[in-house]
Design a protein around this nucleic acid. Sequence first.
DNA 1: CCTGAACTAGACCGATTGGTCTAGCGGGAC
DNA 2: GTCCCGCTAGACCAATCGGTCTAGTTCAGG
Lengths: 188, 188
Amino acid sequence: MIGTTRDKLAWAAAKLFQEKGFHGVGLSEVLAATGLPKGSLYHHFPNGKVDLALEAAAFTNREMTRIIDESFEDTRDFDHGACTFLFKLARMFEVMGNHTGCPITSILFAGPEYEAFRAKSAEYFEEWITGLAAHAVRLGMAPDVARAEAEKTFHLMQGAWTLARAKADSDVMRDMARQMWPGGLNTA
Amino acid sequence: MIGTTRDKLAWAAAKLFQEKGFHGVGLSEVLAATGLPKGSLYHHFPNGKVDLALEAAAFTNREMTRIIDESFEDTRDFDHGACTFLFKLARMFEVMGNHTGCPITSILFAGPEYEAFRAKSAEYFEEWITGLAAHAVRLGMAPDVARAEAEKTFHLMQGAWTLARAKADSDVMRDMARQMWPGGLNTA
DNA sequence: CCTGAACTAGACCGATTGGTCTAGCGGGAC
DNA sequence: GTCCCGCTAGACCAATCGGTCTAGTTCAGG
């Protein structure tokens, strides 16, 4: 959260982009949120807004992979881990005010002219899915079944996040998790 | 597609918003796409961009409910209908160039200060889910099971759409459908 | 102490934004 | 005809956009 000037900018940008998307946030807003001048931003991110968005996305991607790994630590089976994962996301969503979107989609779906963004988002999503699949394999699942289960988990998570945002209600995620993985009941 | 001036504006706006989101599209772009002057836009949509976006969202919402109903016409069971639904979406996504997002989320997730947008998106999503559930009940499912199945279908659809967009590949949706509803194999 | 690089600070730029306003067109009612 | 009204047309506006540039500050290494 705190840290160098560069980190402060990336973090503030990530938070704002999650709410309003890439085009919805002006640099002046990021600057106001950090109290830093424009010169600092362009010193640390020479290519301006695009660089800033990529760093913000990288930042939140690290956070997401960490949450995935944490969710599957000390877990008895995949259902339990997946359930924990969704409860953690629900909590995060709630803490942020029940209106933020998936950081990656919010930042990186800026339109066809931002091909680099699209490619990065595909890379990050693939990272999440292979991460989930690795945990599934570790917990005894056959590799191809694990991959399918990981993709299903990703889709359900994205979908529940979207509906939770529309309803401004984090319980959408929790209810979905309980429904889909009844064996993994968890209140984390 | 064609129609009155008002329809032309709403349709062009819907297409553009799906690609770049509410904040990513300027009115000048919509005007350029339709060849109409600014005066016409503000005559038909007195509250400007917000009105235009709401109409564009209503427009695509009608299209989505129509696609849902079409998918479940002459269908033998829920799996078959759900599968058809996702194949139809995949086709649409492909035709639009493999990079458009869900119209409702693209248009209506513009940030916390647009509370009316958020409320509308919740309303539309609820419409889709109850529509799916109604078809499930009609096909013999118990009401509470039908609701859960409809929500699952919604989540999977949204998630698959997101990943398809990141990968710029419509097969993500088709593969998911085949995986989740193997009984509903369909090439529509 | 001096120098130079890293960084902060913010004035400034042209372009574009959403929005307003007036003028004029076109066709039905009288 | 001529009046009126729904609509088109686009000039114009202040505000904001992302981005550039230069001056000033800070601080480590010599």
